[in-house]
Write a protein that binds this DNA or RNA. Sequence first.
DNA 1: CTGAGCCGTTCAGGCTCCCGAAAGGTTCGA
DNA 2: TCGAACCTTTCGGGAGCCTGAACGGCTCAG
Lengths: 223, 223
Amino acid sequence: MKLLLVDDDAVLTRALRRGLVAEGFSVEVAFDGPEGLWRAREGGYDLILLDIMLPGAHGYRVCAELRRSGVLTPILMLTAKDGDLDEAEALDTGADDYLRKPFSFPVLVARVHALLRRAALGTPAPLVAGDLRLDVGARRALRGGEPVPLTAREFDLLTYLVRRAGRVVSKREILAGVWDDAFEGDPNVVEVYVARLRRKLDGPDGRRSIETVRGAGYRIADR
Amino acid sequence: MKLLLVDDDAVLTRALRRGLVAEGFSVEVAFDGPEGLWRAREGGYDLILLDIMLPGAHGYRVCAELRRSGVLTPILMLTAKDGDLDEAEALDTGADDYLRKPFSFPVLVARVHALLRRAALGTPAPLVAGDLRLDVGARRALRGGEPVPLTAREFDLLTYLVRRAGRVVSKREILAGVWDDAFEGDPNVVEVYVARLRRKLDGPDGRRSIETVRGAGYRIADR
DNA sequence: CTGAGCCGTTCAGGCTCCCGAAAGGTTCGA
DNA sequence: TCGAACCTTTCGGGAGCCTGAACGGCTCAG
């Protein structure tokens, strides 16, 4: 879990950084508004901690700007003034939560966890490999934007392979993971289902979605 | 705006209820943990006020249980002890905010409004899926502007599905969420009610409002 | 009090379509 | 060239799902 901390107070950032790292997060720091904007737009963060008092740009503006440019990363605002107006405005500009200074560290961690959990509920991270895209929640497979109808087994097998994209997966592994640990049948089922997936996934171009690695298993390209 | 108040203190609940009703909310009360769980899972509430000290089940447990079973309604916890741990734990179990007793009534109202506003931001489409629109407060379903008469169960099931629009929901989940965690009957009831909903919702065009995902569950299109 | 009507649930019959076994053909590597 | 590994098609059994019917409980109006 990677956090972006946008704050100009060197003492506070150092303390927060240390604490959050101790909690198992990886933390990057931006020391002013423009840098925060720039970094946040680069993406790759699971959550943004944003102080309201910033040199270069007010926290509200950074927040609104990010939302306007399509950044959906959860934002936790650190408000300085007291009073409800401040906090209401934070939420109105697109922040997901706020925390009034001074705050205790456990409360901060709890809020971060709550936000991450909520975000995880909303977007269960799509699986992508090449032009293949799996939405596990909706149980949908898309190839180049086009939905591909798959049966339950086919979808499970494809999910298993995409989750291990780039690696060679043996038939034994596949049988244990997709079918059952104690599957006693013919390993030929795997071949049968790989063939079915290929027929549905492979385009008219000769490119195969699932490679065969003779004597070892199967592999799906990771990009 | 409909609130669920889960608290066993008769004096406090009566006072709160009266005050909140005067503020324009409609308020229902549950007097212990199990009843709170049951009602909250029924859905239809815009916010849940949850006291930590409860007979039958601790507030944390109720909260965690609700989140685990997919209830996304904002939860405002009323904590009794002081100390940050209590509050951090409240947030960690899935509460959206907490309020330390004793609190003043205006502060409570402010928090409720803040949470509702935040929830509104988080869910841009307030229970709309396709040409379907649910007015949870009035317990009315509209399809293309036309009201569709639904029984209580049918409405609950539809609400459950629309709240999870775009996702595949298994029959087990549905039984736990719409019926009861400890439902021991035939999962066929779900099929029966899906069929009834379809008969009422589906237009003369062949398009199905509720898709069947064989081997996985049901899905309602998110737009 | 009482009967009509609605609601939730169960059950059985029927249907579709998926799963996996089997078997013969094909490709690869030594 | 030969054998092993893999591919592909076919097909019967059955899981999973749909639906109409029926039954008991509950709520009302009369």
